[in-house]
């Protein structure tokens, strides 16, 4: 177990100490005006790697994996189901619930996987890694904060976290992406304009996350917990400790 953990640590160190500086150097030397865009995408992908490798290292358990896949597919379907309302999507809500139930790493995977797979139906593009990362990191933080006891399994907590994280993390990152896509440098005016023009969309998205969390948080957590008990992934005593 210890040794396996080390493997991922080594990978992360290699990425941070070698790959990232090399990428930055390459960008600065060869790419001039587009260096920020290139470097940011590359770093985004590096950051995701250790998360994505979670299940590669430990012996994969069918029931754990299938839960992650099911929840990702549900998130994708949820996005499709509310297609008629632009920016109104339950993905973040489902990711957050998955994360508090299954832990930060699974949370990240549900986010990243649903971002990736849903683009098979909406079309892949340069935005794919950004979406994967945004949803993934929302899940990761939800899981971490829940584990630390800061994010409690209460409607209020989850809704506040959901609204803020969708607005700040998802909105923040996606607007940043569009700035980088169209501009050479990151300047204050452009950022401001992008973020201001993004506010209505991000607000709708955040509101939808809050709404979804408000309605499905309780039944969904109950359902996932029931399944985990039925699967034998957790036992009842753990459950009592949880609540």
């Amino acid at each position: 177990m210890q040794r396996k953990f080390d493997k991922r640590l080594i990978l992360s160190s290699v990425l941070i100490l070698i790959a990232i500086p090399l990428t930055i150097a390459f960008g600065v030397v060869f790419l001039h005006d587009r260096k920020y865009y290139f470097i940011s995408i590359a770093i985004l992908i590096y950051t995701m790697l250790p998360f994505l490798l979670v299940f590669e290292q430990r012996g994969p358990r069918a029931r754990e994996i299938i839960l992650v896949c099911s929840l990702s597919a549900i998130a994708v379907i949820g996005r499709a189901a509310f297609f008629m309302l632009p920016h109104f999507k339950p993905v973040a809500a489902i990711v957050i619930i998955s994360a508090v139930c299954l832990g930060p790493e699974s949370g990240f995977l549900v986010g990243a996987l649903s971002g990736f797979v849903s683009n098979f139906f909406y079309g892949q593009g340069p935005w794919t890694p950004w979406q994967m990362f945004s949803f993934g990191i929302i899940g990761f933080w939800a899981g971490v904060l829940h584990r630390k006891g800061i994010l409690k399994l209460r409607k209020l907590d989850l809704c506040v976290f959901g609204g803020l994280s969708t607005f700040l993390i998802y909105g923040g990152l996606m607007n940043f992406d569009s700035v980088l896509m169209f501009s050479s440098t990151i300047n204050k005016d452009l950022l401001l304009a992008a973020y201001l023009s993004g506010i209505p969309f991000d607000l709708v998205h955040a509101a939808s996350t809050v709404l979804f969390l408000f309605f499905i948080e309780e039944p969904m957590i109950e359902k996932i917990t029931r399944i985990r008990v039925k699967y034998g992934l957790i036992n009842e005593s753990e459950l009592l400790k949880d609540s």
Partner: peptide, 28 residues
């Protein structure tokens, strides 16, 4: 309509998770 949509999504979640057990068994 949104509320009903959420309700249907919720039914789907139950269905999906409950049926996934058999898939996991089939993998194992």
């Amino acid at each position: 309509r949104v509320k009903n949509g959420i309700q249907i999504l919720s039914i789907l979640i139950t269905w999906a998770l409950e049926n996934a057990i058999e898939t996991a068994d089939s993998m194992k």
